[in-house]
Amino acid sequence: MKILAVCGFGVGSSMILKMTIQKAMREIGVEGDVINTDISDSTGHNADAVFSSPDFIGDLEKRFKNKDVKLYAIKRYSDLSEVKEKVQDLVDSKK
């Protein structure tokens, strides 16, 4: 499983989000890669899902329109329970 963590610059918030996703994956017991990136580079990666803030989801929907990628809006990048719920949804959708 490959997940992109996306923010405006790809250096700060998305790094924190990446750590939260990795911890959620460990707790759920699923393996995969998480890459943090900024919004303009996001389409350069192949991924199963993109995690980002509600503010970016509209833009990301346009960018990923023709790709089979699930988009998840995360309100609080450090909220493990919120992130875990979304990772679980992704895992379930792959079954």
């Binding site: 405006g8 610059f9 918030s13 803030s53 509600p54 503010d55 970016f56």
Partner: peptide, 23 residues
Amino acid sequence: DSIEEHGPYIVLADDFALPHARP
């Protein structure tokens, strides 16, 4: 300016924000 442009996503947890900009 980044908050004006990108919104409040730097609020990473309740009560917490990480202001930053591009390197």
